[in-house]
Structures are given as structure tokens and as C-alpha cells.
Amino acid sequence: MSNTYLPFKSRIIKIIPHTAIDYTFLMEYKGDVKPGQFFEVSIPKFGEAPISVSEIGEGYVGLTIRRVGLVTNTIHELQEGGVLFLRGPYGNGFNIDLFKSKEVIVAAGGTGLAPVKGVVDYFADNVHEVTVFSLIAGFKSPKDILYKADFEKWQRTINVIVTVDGSDDETYTGNTGLITNYIQDISIENQSMANVIVVGPPVMIRFTVAEFLKRGIREENIWVSYERKMCCGVGKCGHCKIDDTYICLEGPVFNYVKAKSFID
């Protein structure tokens, strides 16, 4: 009998450091996977952690992992060629087709960019498949900015705004201020048709969605992705449940019509 908890071995093809504590690990993987889905990533004897897919390529997936605990600290010690254990992918992920031929705006806060990055990658490469694609990404400070190389690439094909909450770095010449400040000014061509994806910490999601609603975006056109403590990933352990919804089974990507009624 197949054991859903049994992970498979995956080799680290490449490690891309972004900040002192955020690295993307490109992992060998062949199989179906969607942006916004997640893997349970583990090092035996240290533990498992749910990590969302930040990149999808031929024969590999990218996992952006922040050092925030025993498991992720240990993962960060590994070198290219090393091995991680994965199971998944779990969760629904983003349905790329849903956004085709539409105006799409992505607002991402901090590591929240990871789960939606696959969507950005896709449309930055296939920009003709959307009418307009805009990305607003916010980070705490200049040293927290992720995916710098990707931003340079994206800027060639899609609208990109990067902002930081605050900066004491004199060499930083980019935007400062919260994401919400930029939503007021972003150009939206067709408010009633535009699709918006919001990902980030809970507070960021709440205020950012509120701004988009003010701009006239319809609730059913807003998508959010939730991060929760997903221990098992398969609807058993109960940790990720909000109300009657198991985030690992029905999420982590939700339409705002459903998500707005969640009570934590």
C-alpha cells in the first residue's frame, strides 16, 4: 500500500541566495505541480515544513526557504548536490488558465511572493496571454528584497512596482511605503473585469484586499493564498483548519468570496 507520508528523495540542483535568510532551492522534480501548491519538505531527524512552490521548470521545482526554525536552519546548511526529502505537491494552487486573456494584478508581501511567483513567471514569459499584468511587491527593507534577478527580467515584459516599508540604506533609490499606498495609484484598465491575487502575511492581505475593493475590484475576482501550519498536508492533522475549511485540501488558494468569511 502506498504511504502518503513517505517522502521521496530529491537532489538540490542549485541554491540561489536572495537575502541572508532566504534561499531558493531548485529541487529535482518530475511531475505535475502548480504555482501556489506546497511540498512537505523534510530532513529526517529534524522535521518537516510546508514550503510553497516558487518556481516550476523542466525537471525541477524551486522552493524558497527562509531560516526560521530547526528544520529550515538545517536545510540552509545543505549544499548543491545535497538531498532533501519531499512529499506532495499538496493543495489546489493557482489555476493559470483562469487568468488568461485577463487583466491581472498581483500584490505580494514579503515571502508571500513565493507561492505566486510561478504565476508571475508564467505570464512574464507569455505576456501575450494576458491583457495587462502588474506586480506590486512589498518588502520590509531593501535587504529583504527577494528574487532581484527575476525582477530585472520581469520588468522587461510586465509592470512591476517594488517597494519597501522603510529603508536606512542610503544607496537604495527605489520606492518606500506600504503596498497599500501604491494600490491607490496603480492604473487599472477595467475594474469590473480585472483579477487580483493577494498573498502575504494575514494583516497585509486584509488591508491590501480592502484597497482593491475600494478601487472597484469585484470580490469574485480577488484571489488570496493562506499560509497556515500544515503538518500533514492531507486533511488529517487539523492544524491548518479555519472554520470548516482545511487549507491543505481546499486551499491554500481561495477566492475572496469564500475567504472573506473565514474567522481565525
Binding site: C231, C232, K236, G238
Partner: peptide, 10 residues
């Protein structure tokens, strides 16, 4: 009540 947590030990 059916919830559990995962633990790895050496």
C-alpha cells in the same frame, strides 16, 4: 478529537 502533530527525533 483527531488532531496530531509531527515530530522528528534522533
Amino acid at each position: 478529537c483527531s488532531c496530531f502533530s509531527m515530530q522528528d527525533i534522533f
